[in-house]
Amino acid sequence: MGRITELLNTAHARSQAQNWPYIGALLPHEAHELLQLAPGARLIDVRSRAELELTGTLPGAVHVEWQSWPGWMLNPHFSVQLAQAVDPESLLFFICRNGHRSHHAAIAGTEAGLRQCYNVQEGFEGDLDKNTGHRNALNGWKQRGLPWTQS
């Protein structure tokens, strides 16, 4: 079995165990590795533009807001913008701050007919450390030392 198959099978098993409607759930380092191994794969950053400006961006990611700041209004054009931005046959890895909005975006992508939607668990900044009240310490893309840039 090849490495791509191994990573995707692990992601599929996570999603099936939770009965999520999208095909798979990846950890940040798995998503990054797949982006290196599968050239057609796309990272879809669903964070708001404000978040990108304040906390950093992911090189090569496609940006389609799930919600907009201020007010956290749902993007009514999300599915249309997503369909215009990606190849429907690509592996699509959705990421947000902590994996919650990207979970919903992966569901929306699946419901829109995209068959290869994966949620990146932990997200860009990871879970909140209840001891410190901060992110970026327990897990997430940044904490794992994966590539990102600050504007």
Results as ranks from 00 to 15, higher is better:
Pro70Trp: 05
Pro70Phe: 01
Leu34Arg: 10
Phe78Pro: 13
Pro59Ile: 06
Leu52Arg: 15
Val64Trp: 11
Leu74Met: 01
Gln67Cys: 15
Trp72Gln: 15
Glu51Ser: 08
Trp72Ala: 07
Gly71Tyr: 01
Phe78Ala: 10
Leu34His: 05
Leu34Lys: 08
Met73Asn: 10
Ser79Arg: 14
Gly60His: 13
Gln67Trp: 02
Trp66Tyr: 11
Gly60Tyr: 11
Trp69Glu: 14
Leu74Trp: 04
Leu34Gly: 08
Ala41Gln: 06
Pro76Gln: 01
Asp45Arg: 13
Trp69Cys: 03
Gly56Glu: 06
Leu43His: 12
Phe78Leu: 07
Ala50Asn: 09
Ser48Pro: 12
Asp45Val: 10
Gln81Pro: 04
Glu65Cys: 06
Leu34Asn: 09
Thr57Trp: 05
Leu37Gly: 03
Pro76Asp: 01
Gly40Ile: 03
Phe78Asn: 14
His29Asn: 04
Glu51Trp: 01
Ala61Ile: 08
Val46Gly: 09
Gln81Asp: 14
Trp69Pro: 10
Pro28Val: 08
Arg49Gln: 14
Trp69Ala: 09
Trp72Phe: 15
Ala38Gln: 03
Leu37Lys: 04
Gln36Gly: 00
Gln36Asn: 09
Pro28His: 09
Arg42His: 13
Glu33Cys: 03
Arg49Pro: 13
Ser79Cys: 06
Gly71Pro: 05
Ser68Asn: 09
Trp72His: 15
Pro39Gln: 06
Asn75Arg: 09
Leu74Ile: 02
Leu37Ser: 07
Leu37Thr: 03
Ala50Ile: 04
Ile44Ser: 05
Trp66Cys: 06
Leu34Cys: 12
Ile44Val: 15
Leu52Thr: 02
Leu43Cys: 13
Leu82Ile: 07
Phe78Ile: 04
Glu51Asn: 06
Trp66Ile: 06
Arg47Ala: 14
Thr55Asn: 12
Ser68Phe: 11
Trp69Phe: 15
Ala41Ile: 07
Glu65Lys: 07
Leu74Gly: 05
Val64Asn: 12
Leu82Thr: 03
Val80Gly: 09
Glu33Pro: 07
Pro76Leu: 00
Leu74Cys: 06
Ala31Leu: 13
Phe78Gly: 05
Gly56Ala: 07
Gly71Ala: 03
Trp72Met: 15
Phe78Asp: 02
Asn75Leu: 03
Gly71Arg: 05
His32Leu: 02
Gln67Met: 13
Ala50Asp: 09
Ala38Trp: 09
Leu54Ser: 09
Glu33Thr: 08
Glu53Cys: 12
Val64Thr: 10
Glu33Asn: 02
Ile44Asn: 01
Trp72Ile: 04
Glu30Asp: 09
Trp72Glu: 05
